[in-house]
């Protein structure tokens, strides 16, 4: 499977995606604008709270090609964060008191400067989270020692596992992914991740393998804990239930399966003002592989930069200007405000 980008697919164009989200495909979508919904909830313009997380996309290269990927990542993507941009990120961190650095991709570990960067963040005393797709750990011998590397630098590992069986997981993430994920989880457990008393945190991420909403986070956590322990002897700490955001490859899936209109309607009808209050763009800044700044990972993928024209790149990082900005909203934001809400840290309501 190739990325939309490599296929020159119309949905690799972000303006086309935004147009579809606003107008629909063929027939007029006719859904209320997200900004209006937020105004009704007393949340427009949406302003940041305290900046707690700097989330960095270290590159779009990945060893997997998941059907729902909002990054459109894959082995054919060559965009990768340079060491120079990483140094600019470190300067921004050193000049601020942002406590958490959240590393994502693609597979962030495929960036040749990944380990150096983690060491630098660790040396700055920042909490580092890595969004590890698990299979990278077993993809190549050079990655086999990642669990030890994470452990030695106190890294929190956050890993996608859309279900506790091979069928659903492989349908979304590719053949053999579940088997490799189990192997990687066992390697993480073996060095202490997810095990009681070690302080080494291993959190899993669930997202629906289809055009439906996630189950309650607590219910899923109980089920995952039971099945993974009983059938695979795997332990983990927490589970985050995430709603699929209708952009990029997931948008392509929704349209080609005839589920787009129904899914959007469902998101709109499930708008929850309490979830909207806790959206992650209020305490996060997302840094693109090329250093540009965004309110969140999804705005990054739609090329909607932060509304601070003089400070849109990490080299011009200005915490004060960012704190005063208005967060850029569009129709895809319904994905984060539906039901119990959704963020990189799970539900928000």
């Amino acid at each position: 499977m190739k990325s939309l980008h490599a296929l020159h697919h119309q949905l690799s164009d972000t303006e086309t995606q935004i147009e579809i989200l606003e107008e629909g495909v063929g027939q007029k979508l006719g859904l209320p604008f997200f900004q209006r919904k937020m105004r009704d909830a007393g949340l427009f313009p949406l302003k940041p709270t305290t900046l707690e997380i700097l989330q960095l996309n270290l590159g779009k290269m990945c060893n997997q090609v998941c059907k729902h990927c909002h990054v459109d990542a894959g082995p054919d993507r060559k965009e990768i964060m340079t060491r120079e941009t990483m140094e600019q990120c470190l300067r921004a961190l050193a000049e601020s008191d942002i406590p958490t650095v959240d590393l994502t991709g693609g597979a962030p570990e495929m960036n040749p400067n990944f380990r150096w960067f983690v060491e630098q963040c660790h040396a700055l005393g920042r909490h580092v989270m890595v969004r590890c797709n698990l299979t990278i750990i077993v993809a190549n011998p050079k990655y086999h020692d990642l669990p030890e590397f994470y452990r030695d630098h106190g890294v929190e590992v956050v890993s996608s596992l859309p279900f506790y069986n091979a069928d659903k997981t492989d349908r979304q993430r590719g053949t053999g992914v579940f088997k490799d994920s189990v192997r990687a989880l066992k390697m993480l457990n073996a060095v202490g991740y997810g095990m009681e008393g070690t302080g080494l945190v291993l959190n899993l991420v669930y997202n629906p393998a289809g055009a439906f909403m996630p189950a309650s986070q607590e219910t899923l956590k109980r089920q995952f804990k039971r099945v993974l322990r009983d059938e695979f002897e795997i332990e983990f700490n927490d589970l985050y239930a995430i709603t699929n955001i209708p952009i990029s490859r997931y948008l392509d899936y929704l349209i080609s399966s005839g589920n787009f209109e129904g899914y959007m309607e469902k998101l709109v009808n499930s708008f929850n003002p309490i979830a909207a209050e806790g959206v992650m763009c209020r305490n996060t800044i997302s840094v693109g592989w090329d250093g540009y700044l965004f309110d969140c990972d999804f705005n990054q993928m739609l090329e909607l930069p932060v509304a601070t024209p003089a400070h849109q790149h990490i080299r011009d990082f200005n915490a004060k200007a960012l704190a005063e900005r208005e967060i850029v909203l569009n129709q895809h934001c319904y994905g984060c405000t539906a039901g119990s809400g959704s963020s990189c840290g799970g539900t928000t309501a």
Binding site: N165, D167, K168, Y206, M213, A215, S216, T219
Partner: peptide, 11 residues
């Protein structure tokens, strides 16, 4: 069918 999927049930 939708509700059971959304409750995390398997096929």
């Amino acid at each position: 069918t939708v509700d059971t999927l959304e409750k995390g049930c398997t096929e």
